[in-house]
Design a protein around this nucleic acid. Structure first.
Lengths: 200, 200
DNA sequence: TGCAAATTTGCACTTAGTGCGTATATATCA
DNA sequence: TGATATATACGCACTAAGTGCAAATTTGCA
């Protein structure tokens, strides 16, 4: 389990490294238990024990049990927003977002996404917070779009682009889970945006 | 506080009537306390005491503290869906939804909506579940649309219509709160749909 | 009135999450 | 290297939400 790659020579001091390791250990332990016994049935005591820390210390890594699952989502929204800011001149907002999204999704393996999605559905509270995070991502995306196309006249239109794009992500992820991964997320996203453009 | 109107001659038996009264008393008590001390600072013990019931009985009226606030939203989504099913022949899906939404929103007073919205923002969990309820409403709306326009070819387009419509509701409610009620929800909804149609 | 069903309640329990004080490990600098 | 500051880990006691269960009370109805 020596997880240090040659090209990442132990970033930060020992303190930071240990912290990252512990964080990973907690996440791994939690996901293992969630898959084995279900989310609700897994107590924080069990997770802490499995990760080899005290119950109290858990809360210096996560604010709540829900946050473990939510952290699996990563900082997807920010990546997309950063990409949108770099959209080449002449491109349309919708195309820029589509390309950014597809580029950002491509690296993630579908089966992992499906597992995470299934886990998240097992808790109503987590599921709800996931929906809320879409709204947050929509906001982030809108801010990026407004910075890239600052014309005040377009503001409402950009709000709609953000809304429709995040909506497309949502519909695509739903479809991915529904279909059990028969088609890739990139493919589904492409299709969703195609439908979007046909409608427009 | 005799709350019986002449045209509603005590629906149901005494049991049902008392139950509705108690439900109302709990809601009133809770909202009063939330406004006075804030959501998080108000305990279930306090709500139960204020409503004149035991803490244990509270849970035979609401599944959780969050549910009190969520219940204030009403069954908006179902009303809209029912209205969409009755859309006149020849109307387009987007117009049908727009009209249904505007009709359904009209009766609710803006200031009340703003108060509820503000209360909901005071709890992250409640706010999250509110976003989740939008997703649910989107699903309900889509089902209604598919029933009214059953052509399988249009299914994806109808999914998008549902998404954009609920999105418009979300953006309009946000704007209502942001503007503090200077413009009515009906007006804001109309504007949102106008922008939507311009984009299409 | 008397019996069945629904409602209310108290009590004990589990779990999530917080505050606080202390011990221990790591970082920094002389 | 050693002293000191700082971050981390932990134990303990606490609050508050939510559940299961069984007894007590109230209501519906014959």
């Amino acid at each position: 389990m020596t997880d240090m790659r040659a090209d990442e020579p132990a970033l930060g001091g020992l303190r930071e490294r240990k912290r990252r390791q512990t964080l990973q250990r907690i996440t791994d332990a939690a996901v293992r238990l969630f898959l084995a016994q279900g989310y609700e049935a897994t107590t924080l005591d069990a997770i802490a024990a499995e990760a080899g820390i005290s119950r109290r210390s858990f809360f210096s890594y996560f604010r709540s049990k829900d946050d473990i699952l939510l952290s699996l989502q990563g900082s997807f929204g920010d990546e997309v927003a950063a990409e949108v800011l770099k959209a080449p001149p002449g491109s349309t907002p919708l195309h820029a977002v589509r390309d950014a999204l597809i580029a950002a999704c491509a690296p993630y393996p579908a089966d992992e996404m499906i597992v995470i999605d299934r886990l998240m559905r097992s808790s109503e509270a987590v599921q709800a917070r996931k929906q809320a995070s879409y709204v947050q991502q929509e906001r982030t995306l809108f801010e990026a779009l407004r910075e890239r196309w600052p014309d005040p006249e377009r503001e409402t239109a950009l709000r709609l682009v953000a809304m429709m794009s995040i909506g497309a992500v949502r519909l695509s992820l739903d479809a991915l889970s529904r279909e059990g991964g028969r088609r890739s997320l990139v493919e589904l996203l492409g299709e969703a945006f195609e439908a979007l453009e046909r409608a427009i």
